Amino acid sequence: MDETMSMLFVFVESTGYLAPFAFILLHLLRSFFFIPVAVICIVGGILFGSVFGTLYSLIGLTFVSITFYILFKKMPSTFKRVIVLKEKWLGSSVNFTIGQIAILRLIPFINFHLLSLCLVEVTRNFRQYVKNSFTTNIPVALFYTVFGQFIREFSTTIIIMILLALTLLFYLLREKQVIIKWDVFFKDKAEKSYL
């Protein structure tokens, strides 16, 4: 983890005035290098400060979300793996609210693109997706940029308390009803009656 952060510091600091653009580009390339979102946001907070680090992280994460949306709509067969991952972990009829997606983005071990897929499913068009994506990226950019550098100093108890608080918020912001399509509901019953 420290080696990754050191390499990111050297990369961004060596670009000089282009550092903000290099940092935003780093957000776009992050998933190819398997670097977690939290690490990039922490580096942004340390290099650019809380305000500009949050702003640059927010821009970078929004560009990542827009790129995901465009690629998903143009090449849906490429994203079958993400769809299978969503159905395996969450089921096919689960729809998260925007608040729940924002909270889930704060949890580092949940895949960013999986949550982008959930966001695609609950939005009607590209404009609404961009607006909701920007909204759900604000907490993760702000939290990890401002408080990220202090996370290493937290005790295990505090980290567990933060995760429990996020779980409680996730439950409170859930969608109160689940809509299951007619054919999906009766498909299971029809299969059982033939057995």
Score class of each variant (00 low, 15 high):
E3P: 13
T4Y: 10
M5W: 09
S6P: 05
L8I: 01
L8P: 00
F11Q: 14
V12N: 03
G16R: 05
Y17W: 15
L26M: 15
V37H: 13
I40V: 15
I40L: 14
I40A: 10
G45H: 00
L47D: 01
L47C: 03
F52P: 00
F52R: 14
T54D: 06
L55R: 03
L55V: 06
S57P: 03
L58V: 04
G60P: 01
F63S: 06
K73T: 14
F79Y: 04
L85G: 03
K86V: 09
E87N: 10
K88P: 01
W89G: 07
S92Y: 08
S92V: 06
S93W: 11
V94G: 08
T97L: 04
G99Q: 06
G99E: 09
I101V: 03
A102H: 04
A102Y: 02
I103A: 04
I110V: 10
H113S: 11
S116A: 08
L119P: 02
R124Y: 06
F126G: 13
N132T: 07
S133F: 07
I138R: 04
P139C: 04
P139I: 03
V140A: 13
G148V: 02
G148C: 00
Q149K: 12
F150R: 13
I151A: 08
R152I: 12
E153Y: 05
E153S: 08
F154I: 01
T156R: 09
I158S: 11
I160N: 12
L164V: 15
L166G: 06
L168D: 08
R174K: 10
E175N: 15
K176M: 03
V178K: 14
K181F: 09
V184Q: 12
F185T: 05
K187F: 05
D188I: 06
A190K: 14
S193R: 12
L195M: 11
